[in-house]
């Protein structure tokens, strides 16, 4: 019993860390690129998007994990999509009701969470095979990893494009804002360079990190 408990704890720990770095959805698995690029012009929308994804991921993982024994193989994907779409609608309504300006900034990228590969991928790879606890931890860690990646990208872009972070000015007056960073070009190139940086770090580290 004891070893069993220990292994489950270590599994939990592993899943928790996996999402943040080793299997980071954005930097390592290259999932969910569309929101990653679209909403990261500033930190505020990026964080909101990250929180929405965490909420949807958590709910869908819980629901899928609870009914994993009842799922019929060929109706599986349909069930996942239905679950995800429902929770995305709820998240969207919530944003419209309580954060109307944020909802306008994010626009159609909130409903686009439905086709965000991260969520369906976690439902398929984790929640439909594991118990409630592992699924919840997996959702939280994957969500956190995604949010972290969004925020890193968004802070770089916001600082360079407006000289401010979280709308608070931090760069000296002499700094000329790079408007291009707020446009699609900035998103593509910043993410490309970030991925290159991540690649460089993992190549340099011995195999233990890359596993």
């Amino acid at each position: 019993m004891k070893t069993n408990a220990q292994t489950s704890v270590s599994i939990c720990k592993q899943t928790l860390l996996a999402g943040l770095w080793r299997e980071n959805p954005v930097f390592r698995l290259l999932l969910g690129m569309c929101p990653t690029l679209a909403v990261t012009a500033a930190v505020k929308p990026a964080l909101t998007m990250g929180l929405c994804v965490i909420f949807v991921l958590l709910c869908s993982n819980i629901v899928v994990s609870l009914m994993r024994h009842l799922l019929k193989p060929h109706l599986r994907i349909l069930m996942f999509t239905l679950t995800i779409a429902t929770f995305v609608t709820i998240a969207d309504l919530f944003l419209q009701a309580y954060f109307p300006t944020m909802s306008e900034t994010l626009g159609p990228y909130v409903p686009l969470i439905i086709v965000n590969c991260i969520i369906i991928c976690r439902a398929e790879a984790c929640a439909s095979k594991n118990g409630l606890a592992v699924s919840i931890i997996d959702a939280l860690s994957m969500g956190a990893g995604f949010t972290l990646a969004l925020c890193i990208l968004a802070s770089i872009r916001e600082i360079l494009s407006t000289g401010a972070l979280w709308e608070i000015k931090i760069m000296p007056d002499i700094f000329t804002p790079w408007t291009a960073m707020r446009m699609p070009v900035g998103a593509f190139i910043t993410l490309g360079l970030l991925l290159a940086l991540v690649n460089a770090i993992t190549v340099r580290k011995p195999k233990s990190a890359a596993q």
Binding site: M67, L70, K72, L75, L78, L82, T89, L93, F94
Partner: peptide, 25 residues
């Protein structure tokens, strides 16, 4: 049956969310 039952359940969830937040929106 699972699909039908859960569709009903999700529909209910959406209806509640909609009723709760539409006036505010």
């Amino acid at each position: 049956w699972l699909l039908i039952v859960s569709s009903f359940f999700f529909g209910l969830l959406l209806a509640i969310a909609d009723a709760a937040w539409t006036p505010r929106i």
